[in-house]
Structure formats: C-alpha cells, structure tokens
C-alpha cells in the first residue's frame, strides 16, 4: 500500500534551486555585494540628474516601477519563500487602492493615514481570504485565490459611489505633511523610494529569521514540518496576511501615483503579470521581484516607442528566460554559499 504521507513528491513547490550557477557573483564578488547600495544611491539621485538629460518623464516611470516592485516583492514572499501559489495578489493591491479612494471620498486628506489604512485593510482582507484558501492545496489554492480576487474585482465594478467601471479620480494629491509637500516637486518619488527600501530591508530580514526559515521549511516539506510540531496553517496564514498588507500598501501608493483608481488595477491579468515578473526575476530570491519588475516594465516602455505589438518580444523574452535561466535573473547575482541572496 502506498504511503500517502511520507511521499516526498508531495512537496508543493520544489525548491527554486539547490545549486545555482553564480556566474557574475564569482567574477565580481565585491561589486555584487555592494550593488544594492549602489542602485539605491543612483535611484536617490535620479530626480536631480534626470533634468540634465531631459529624462524628467522617467522620474514618474521609476516611481511606478518601485511601487510595482513592492507589490511583486510581497508576492515573491508568499510564493517564493512560502510556496503559496496565489493567483489573486492584485486583489490586495486593489483593496489598498480603494481604501485610499474611500478615505478621500470621505474627506480625509492625509497620505500617511490613507496608506496606513490601505495596508491594514488589505492585511485584514488577506487574513480572511487566507483563512479559507489555505485549507486547500495546489491547483485548488490557485483557483480559490483567483476566485476571491475576482469577487473583489466585481465588487469594485459595482461600487457606483467610487465610479464603478469608470474609476475614481483623486484630483488633489494627498498631503504628506507640511515640510514634505513644499520641499521639492519630486518629494513623492523619494517617499516611495524610502518605503520600497524599507520593505526590501524588512523582507530580507524576515527571510533569515525563525519565521522565514519556518516558511521555507513548509514550502519544501510541509508534512515534515507538521511532524516537527510546527503550527503550519497559522504560519502560512501569518505570511499570507503580511504579504497582502504590503500589496495593499503598494495599492495605496499606486492610487496616489496615478491620481486615479479603477477596477482594472485588480483584474486577474494584473495578478498574472505580477507572477510573470516575479518568475522572470527569480522566485524565492531576495532581489528577484525588483529585477523582474525593472526588466519587464523597462522593456515594455521601450518597445512601446517602436511598436504596438510589444507583447511579442516580451513573450519571446519570457520563453528565453524559461529555457536559458529558469531560476530567474537574480540567480546570476548570487554567491554559492547562499548568503548572497537568501536563496
């Protein structure tokens, strides 16, 4: 009789890579270690340098990129580290965005209050959805998270007060506080950059904490984790809710960025796009999400200049990555000892 429990093939998502081939990291170890700081410095200076090259338009582009990277990083956390293949992550982005809309509609104008509320509302929503969804596995989990996200989507469509299908315009920017608002036209960019840096630092930290190790253990061998005495369900739920909260924060920021929110923000194709970007960058790798987002959005932006059929080359790129670098771009930057990228 087959033993249904101890079969190792039941581990849902296989470990992304046991032995990555760290090409860049071997050749330039120092550079790769300092790269995140270097990138942060360049990003911080970008709004000041952009006018010199006539690139002002791209300050807004990079701001959007950073916001999407926050959302992608939260998906990477539950999917890459937690092994939870959720296909409804844009739903939580949408909950965050509509929380901002609701507060603005009710007459509130503080950005910090709105973004904080977006974080909390999406976290609460993720906790409720996770409490149900996490009782299922594999394909069923994918379908049920998708179903919940679609419910949220149609809820947004049906909300006439907030514009329904047409969306809702946020005509006056949210106030970030007296000394920030007047300081510089691009202050919102730096605020987003700061929040993104904090989010990435936090995820990096959590990955090496007890909680991070426990989540990866559940991803790799859930049965063993239960037999070791771990509260598997509660750990997954905590990770799922935290990721939903961060996605909601990204949604709140996106609402401010676009000064407009419509249900399209939480359509299921947006969830799929987030998934594609995370896989492109490297599932379960510390810098996977920002790399994937940066590559995808930059190429999209460039290709749009030349052709309306920009999906074509992006599709080819995806195929190329799947066949040539299945562990994602971030794997190229990692050292073999595993400390470079938290796996």
């Amino acid at each position: 009789m087959a033993n249904p429990v101890s079969d190792p093939s039941r581990a849902t998502v296989q470990t992304a890579a046991a032995h990555p081939q760290p090409r860049l990291a071997v050749r330039f170890p120092g550079l790769v270690r300092r790269l995140p700081w270097l990138v942060l410095a360049v990003l911080a200076l970008f709004p000041l340098l952009a006018p010199l090259g006539g690139l002002e338009y791209y300050v807004g582009f990079v701001r959007r990129l950073l916001i999407v990277a926050i959302a992608a990083a939260s998906l990477n956390f539950i999917l890459g580290y937690g092994g939870m293949a959720a296909l409804g992550h844009a739903g939580f982005v949408g909950v965050g965005a509509y929380t901002v809309v609701a507060l603005v509609d009710a007459g509130f104008s503080s950005a910090w209050l709105a973004w904080g509320a977006a974080l909390l509302a999406a976290g609460l929503c993720a906790a409720l959805i996770g409490a149900v969804s996490l009782r299922t596995r594999g394909v069923y989990f994918i379908m049920i998270t998708l179903a919940f996200a679609q419910m949220l989507y149609y809820l947004a469509v049906s909300l006439r007060t907030y514009g329904g299908d047409d969306g809702y315009g946020l005509y006056t920017p949210l106030a970030m506080g007296a000394w920030l608002d007047g300081a510089h036209p691009d202050v919102f960019y730096w605020v987003v950059l700061g929040i993104a840096a904090l989010v990435f630092a936090a995820f990096g930290r959590v990955a090496h904490s007890r909680f991070g190790y426990a989540l990866r253990g559940i991803r790799d061998n859930e049965t063993r984790m239960a037999a070791l005495g771990y509260p598997v369900y509660r750990l997954k739920l905590a990770g799922f809710a935290a990721a939903g909260a961060v996605a909601g924060l990204a949604g709140g920021l996106l609402a401010s960025h676009n000064a407009f929110v419509s249900p399209a923000i939480m359509h299921w194709t947006q969830s799929a796009l987030l998934l594609v970007m995370v896989m492109l960058g490297g599932l379960g790798r510390r810098w996977g999400a920002p790399l994937g987002v940066a590559l995808w959005l930059t190429l999209e932006e460039m290709l749009k200049l030349y052709t309306d059929y920009w999906h074509w080359p992006l599709g080819l790129l995806l195929l190329l990555v799947v066949f040539r670098a299945p562990q994602g771009l971030a794997a190229l930057f990692e050292r073999r000892d595993g400390h470079g990228g938290a796996r």
Partner: peptide, 20 residues
C-alpha cells in the same frame, strides 16, 4: 537541525531577529 530545534524552543513567529 536548526529547524527541528527551533520548533521546540519558543515561537516561530519571531520575524526580526536573525536566527544565526
């Protein structure tokens, strides 16, 4: 081994202190 030991020693919800 750390994962097994950790399961018995305090909460695995700790998320800010480095396990190392």
């Amino acid at each position: 081994l750390l994962l097994a030991v950790q399961a018995q020693a305090g909460s695995s919800f700790r998320c800010l202190r480095r396990r190392e």
